[in-house]
Design a protein around this nucleic acid. Structure first.
Length: 553
RNA sequence: GCUCCCAUCGUCUAGCGGUCCAGGACGCAGCCCUCUCAAGGCUGAGACACGGGUUCGAUUCCCGUUGGGAGCGCCA
């Protein structure tokens, strides 16, 4: 789109950025490219759950994804307030909201209400018992002057006097949606603590910040008529709305941060030995967590335990993907595809799917946003990531990988750089993620383990060392001598030596290579033999062969 | 329970009345290549939820059913 367009992303800082939010941010950003403005606002009106560190984390996540905001909190050269529409934290804008409230109350379009949260809870559960939804009823014995007098001295909320008329929401992706007056009640604008509710904050801020297009998840659709009614009461414009479909788990359930906690709980319950249960008791809040299914552990503790238990946590926050070593441009690409498609063919005549943020910025339109919810398919994401990694140059890969290691695998950085470069070159085309390139379970894991920590795969040993005529063991012993004599222990000469040995014995190359591979790596799978052995170095290879000959009989 | 949204291969999607015995991607299966793996090449299986309309003609439009999802807070 571009000129004249102002979009925004307005997360609440209660944790890391969720992938659904990341996608909304990405779309909003893309829509504003080409002359528009993308701004970032932090909706920290839930004072109990918001935190500054979470806000910072979100800025960091966005920056990592390559989503830069033109206006908003300053972060590493991103953001700022060129038009003076800030501040961008809602809790710093309280006087602005209060002025609007005053106007609304003066016009009797809003009024103070004095029910306590407990009273409302009671009414709500009663309504539920009767099988209906709770709807706030204006007090029957309403006296405006009395209420305003009470307002000055008693705790209260301010509610919006919802006009008794239906509201039609015009949505760019969903069309026109009518909401009857019976489903709209007098919602709260300002909470007891003096902070605006989400509804009030967005409406006021979007107006003051000049937002023209609001993109948000479909779960907000039902809120929109309230916002529209409020805009009318306040004399504001109504922005263009676009409610984008939700991102769901592979099983079709809502992608929720809770799922991580749940995964750990399932592991604990499935553990017959009771050892995991035992472990939980030693953790902060563990006892209560075990007793109460609705409780959640601290995210940090959940990650730690998952690591210990070998539980694979669902990936739902941007940070999860970063930790897993997914490239940011790939995550953006995949996320963009979940709910939007370019509708264009690539050079081979196939539907275009691989693109970068620059392409998205140039081609994104709301018209091509889908309407159905999408399930997150991590296999496809990882396939994209593997491709992207393979397309990186050796140098680019080394840079990305090194940066990843600095953050998530500092021990890898302790190794000599020349060795790391060689290792990176060896594993690159075999990695789905950057993490694979640092994992003992990854394609080069054999080189990360001490010689005596190798575990021999029984099936591989049986097939490649015991069987054959002559048996693999015998060829392995001969290969050992051949390798000892290789002048320069580099891939080419190593392979030449092995090939020569195989030929002289009238055997296929595999008959010698596989026993060597098993001896050097513990299994039947590894990068090409020359590289595999060269990275270990001659001494380690000979040691491993000796150990293998001794142990695998 | 009420309200709203949605519905093409297992998953993400293309398709905006005839171009569709429905195309692509991921995954899956087979073959080729090959010292194993990865990559690559080739091939294959695999979907318009169902029932009514509208129309000369429906995957495409309308209605209903079924299924899925979201919302119903002094959370956002």
């Amino acid at each position: 789109m571009g000129p004249g367009v102002t979009t925004r992303f307005a997360p609440s800082p209660t944790g890391h950025l969720h992938v659904g939010g990341a996608r909304t941010a990405l779309y909003s950003w893309a829509l504003a490219q080409g002359g528009g403005r993308f701004l970032l606002r932090i909706e920290d009106t839930d004072r109990a759950r918001s935190s500054e560190s979470a806000a910072r984390g979100i800025l960091e996540d966005l920056a990592w994804l390559g989503i830069r905001w033109d206006e908003g909190p300053a972060f590493e050269g991103i953001g700022g307030d060129p038009r003076g529409v800030g501040p961008f934290f809602q809790t710093e804008r309280l006087p602005i909201y209060d002025r609007c409230i005053e106007t609304l109350v003066a016009q009797d379009r809003a009024y103070p209400a004095f029910e306590t949260p407990d009273e409302l809870d009671g009414l709500r559960s009663e309504a539920q018992r009767r099988g209906g939804a709770f709807r706030y009823q204006r007090p029957a014995d309403w006296n405006r002057d009395a209420a305003l007098a009470r307002m000055a001295r008693e705790p209260h909320v301010v509610r919006f006097r919802m006009p008794r008329e239906p509201v039609i929401v015009v949505d760019t992706v969903l069309g026109e949606i009518a909401f009857g007056e019976e489903q709209l009640d007098d919602f709260v604008l300002r909470k007891r603590d003096g902070v605006p509710t989400y509804h009030f904050g967005v409406v006021v801020d979007d107006e003051r910040m000049g937002v023209t297009h609001v993109l948000r998840g479909q779960e907000h659709l039902g809120n929109t008529p309230r916002h529209v009614a409020l805009q009318r009461a306040l004399g504001f414009r109504t922005p263009v709305y676009a409610h984008v479909p939700l991102i769901l788990n592979a099983d079709g359930s809502k992608l929720s941060k809770r799922d991580k906690d749940r995964a750990v709980r399932e592991a604990v319950e499935a553990d017959a030995s009771g050892r995991k249960r035992e472990r939980i008791l030693g953790v902060e809040g563990g006892r209560a967590w075990l007793d109460d299914e609705s409780r959640q552990l601290e995210p940090r503790i959940v990650s730690e335990l998952a690591d210990e238990f070998g539980v694979e946590l669902p990936m739902i926050e941007v940070e999860d993907f970063r930790r897993a070593g997914v490239l940011p441009q790939v995550l953006c690409n995949y996320l963009a595809l979940l709910g939007w498609s370019p509708g264009e063919k690539d050079a081979e005549g196939r539907d275009l799917e691989r693109f970068d943020n620059a392409y998205l910025a140039a081609h994104f339109t709301l018209e091509r946003v889908g309407r159905g919810n999408a399930r997150f398919d991590r296999e496809k994401l990882l396939a994209f990531d593997q491709d992207a990694i393979a397309k990186l140059s050796e140098e680019e890969f080394f840079e990305s990988w090194s940066a990843w290691c600095a953050r998530y695998s500092p021990r890898m950085r302790e190794r000599d750089e020349a060795w790391r470069r060689r290792y990176a070159a060896m594993v690159r085309t075999r990695c789905r993620t950057l993490a694979d390139a640092a994992s003992p379970r990854g394609p080069g894991g054999f080189a990360l383990l001490p010689d005596d920590a190798l575990v021999y795969d029984e099936a591989a040993v049986a097939k490649w060392l015991r069987k054959g005529d002559p048996p693999g063991r015998a060829l392995l012993a001969e290969a050992r001598d051949a390798l000892r004599g290789v002048a320069s222990f580099e891939p080419e000469p190593i392979e030449a030596a092995v090939r020569k040995l195989a030929e002289s014995r009238g055997q296929g190359l595999g008959k010698v290579a596989q026993p060597l591979r098993v001896a050097a790596t513990g299994g039947a799978v590894s990068p090409p033999l020359g590289e595999t052995l060269a990275i270990l170095g001659r001494d380690a290879v000979l040691r491993r062969i000796d150990r293998c000959l001794a142990e695998c009989r």
